[in-house]
């Protein structure tokens, strides 16, 4: 087939021009860096000690003197709790995302390069993994391991690894069908080598996008598990745990739920925007359409 698409011509002409940075990417990056910054600061400094009880100052409304986000029922400073909560959320999400990505990508990649039998086998296995309700897995894990951050991380990994494997396998197979892969075989490269040398870098952008979306989901899952009492336990600070503790007081001090709720929401939106922005930015088609 001759390439007769005149639009391709435009692509060649504009390929030298700058890529446009999508606004989602900028907004997402700003939100994410603010949250990461707050989390990092909280390691060294918070306005008040996290666990100092100060009953006389209980249930201060947000904006009270010296307490930007108010205090809880024992007079503990909410600003400090939220800051430290960001740290825990980010830490759990990061560990679980990275710990899922590495085995997930590896399984997906090797499966894509395997014989049809193994491809089918791995596909069925990931189907089963995806079909298992994640919360159920987490509850079972909690009964055997006890609640806490490690349980949350392992539960999230169970949740993510099959998805990552699945998301990697499809595009990897597509790359494997390209001519440069056959060319590499024709100059004697073994299949394993081709997977890491040619396939992995080509699906890299996709994995980066997937990682940022997973990160957002991990924040949500961590909060949900802590809310259910499976994740972080006092004294470990956690947004989900704050939500849980505030629930009985919803009439008396609604801000105790609203503040961690908004924190979770902003973090999730931030990482989703980042993922969406990266998807647009890394899409090779974008260069063709971006400038006219």
């Amino acid at each position: 087939m001759a390439d007769t698409d005149d639009f391709e011509f435009l692509e060649i002409a504009t390929s030298g021009s700058r890529r446009r940075v999508p606004p989602q990417l900028v907004i997402g990056a700003v939100i994410v860096s603010v949250i990461v910054g707050i989390g990092m600061v909280s390691v060294f400094w918070t306005p008040y000690d996290l666990n100092t009880v100060d009953v006389p100052n209980q249930f201060l409304r947000p904006g009270s003197d010296g307490y930007l986000l108010g205090t809880d029922k024992l007079g503990r400073d909410m600003t400090s709790q939220i800051m430290a909560g960001a740290r825990n959320s980010l830490l759990v999400s990061m560990i679980s995302t990275v710990a899922s990505l590495i085995p997930g990508v590896l399984i997906g990649l090797l499966a894509a390069g395997a014989s049809p039998f193994w491809q089918r086998f791995i596909s069925r296995l990931t189907d089963i993994g995806i079909a298992l309700p994640g919360i159920l897995v987490a509850l079972v894990l909690a009964t055997s391991l006890g609640p806490g951050n490690p349980t949350a991380i392992i539960a999230i990994m169970f949740w993510f690894i099959p998805t990552v494997a699945r998301v990697t396998m499809g595009p990897a197979r597509q790359i494997l069908s390209r001519d440069f892969v056959e060319a590499a075989q024709a100059y004697g490269r073994p299949r394993r080598f081709i997977l890491f040398r040619h396939v992995l870098p080509n699906i890299g952008p996709l994995i980066i996008v997937q990682a940022s979306v997973m990160f957002a989901l991990a924040i949500l899952i961590e909060a949900a598990l802590s809310y259910l009492g499976i994740g972080a336990q006092r004294p470990t600070p956690s947004w989900g745990r704050l939500l849980k503790e505030a629930q009985p007081l919803i009439d008396k001090a609604p801000y105790l739920m609203i503040i961690p709720g908004i924190s979770i929401m902003v973090a999730v939106i931030g990482f989703n925007l980042l993922g969406d922005g990266l998807r647009t930015y890394l899409d090779p088609q974008q260069t063709a359409k971006g400038t006219g």
């Binding site: 001519d179 440069f180 060319a183 024709a186 100059y187 040619h198 870098p201 080509n202």
Partner: peptide, 19 residues
């Protein structure tokens, strides 16, 4: 054997690794 037998494909766009 591979050294002595080489091949060129149809689609120039996909014969070289874009990365």
């Amino acid at each position: 054997f591979h050294r002595r037998n080489q091949i060129v494909f149809q689609s120039p766009a996909s014969s070289l690794d874009p990365r």
